[in-house]
Write a protein that binds this DNA or RNA. Structure first.
Lengths: 199, 199
DNA sequence: AAATATCCTTAATCTAGTTCAAGCGTCAAT
DNA sequence: ATTGACGCTTGAACTAGATTAAGGATATTT
């Protein structure tokens, strides 16, 4: 009944939303996934490094961001409990990543390495299946975000963010939300002021 | 040696980039995928309709777009030879789609219906595997596009589009490219003028 | 408890991108 | 041959959002 057990239970429970795992598959999880606890502001992945882990978030909150030539950070993705975070491109290609992954709260994760995940894929149809479904869901989310970006104002995008990620929006500093929306913190502040005044 | 055969050959060849299919799997393709030829400006999917097909593009060029309240079209995705186009969300949920899919050239497609694709997934590990990889690649592309959208100017996004999709950019009218980039055709025209003048 | 980051807001100025309107070239259909 | 529909461009006026700079509020660290 130790922490590792708790974390794994959370992952097993998570997979029940898809095609639930049998005992053998659950055992594989427990040997292949490694628990990791980190404090706030820990860098899980740095630009230039190969992304070695596919990460399931048991507790806490992380962000994935790119840094442009002028040094500005741009948040590509947030992740919290029961979500995955990884630089897919670097993870599969085993080439240096162009992004950072960093905790925004003290966090507990379960991580699997490339060869271990390939082992699961190769030997268990169900893992290929479940990860296909997971990525499909994340693809749909991302496509909605693209649509927002090309068709909506910053104001509309902010409202949509509040609607879709209510639990994230009250956990994160607004500077981080602004970076995710692709606007400056100053402009987000203006948007928020307008919203409170006109309602 | 008919056309259907040619189209299927193209799909089989496509799968060689992933985990190549054995004879039984190839046979399944030939019975489950249906060839469809359409002229220019044909609507493959309309808003409000359930997306019934997962579509492989053998020849031609298609776009997927959403229409906002003011009637403006916003291009979410283009697809050409050896690419897939589908409203994933509607296809899997079997709920009405919020987007349109339309040919921009006379096109040849291979389409599979939901139950048939599920049949492939359920009975052949390899299809779950291959479609996982396909979606992962498209996820990475989409993530790069999000990064562009939140961090780059219209000018930079246009240059990046030219670089990544040179074959599409000379096939499409600029109005369509502008809609994909999230800017007006007028502003794209201005960008293009600046580019030719300053180089 | 002080000290230092980090975060949030406001306001003035500036710029990237939109809107509206018009004109022109091209291509497909009658 | 002529008519449209469509695509491309230009310019003037406008607006969403960035930039810069400053001050105050909250946390976090020492």
């Amino acid at each position: 009944m130790n922490d590792h057990h708790d974390a794994l239970d959370k992952l097993i429970k998570y997979f029940k939303n898809f095609f639930p795992l049998n005992e053998k598959e659950r055992n594989e999880l427990s040997t292949r996934f490694i628990e990791r606890k980190v404090k706030r502001r820990a860098l899980i992945l740095q630009q230039g490094e190969v992304c070695r882990h596919f990460t399931f978030i048991v507790k806490g909150c992380l962000k994935m961001y790119a840094v442009d030539k002028s040094g500005k950070e741009h948040n590509l993705q947030f992740g919290a409990e029961n979500d995955w975070i990884t630089d897919l491109s670097s993870f599969y290609s085993e080439k240096p990543s162009s992004v950072y992954i960093e905790t925004m709260e003290p966090s507990v994760m379960l991580q699997i390495k490339h060869p271990d995940l390939l082992h699961l894929y190769t030997n268990y149809h169900k893992f290929d299946r479940n990860f296909r479904i997971i990525i499909e869901q994340k693809y749909i989310e991302l496509q909605n975000r693209v649509l927002q970006n090309i068709s909506s104002t910053a104001n509309e995008r902010y409202l949509s963010f509040l609607e879709h990620y209510p639990n994230l929006s009250n956990r994160l500093p607004n500077t981080q939300v602004a970076s995710y929306l692709g606007i400056t913190p100053e402009f987000l502040s203006k948007i928020r002021k307008d919203l409170t005044q006109n309602h």
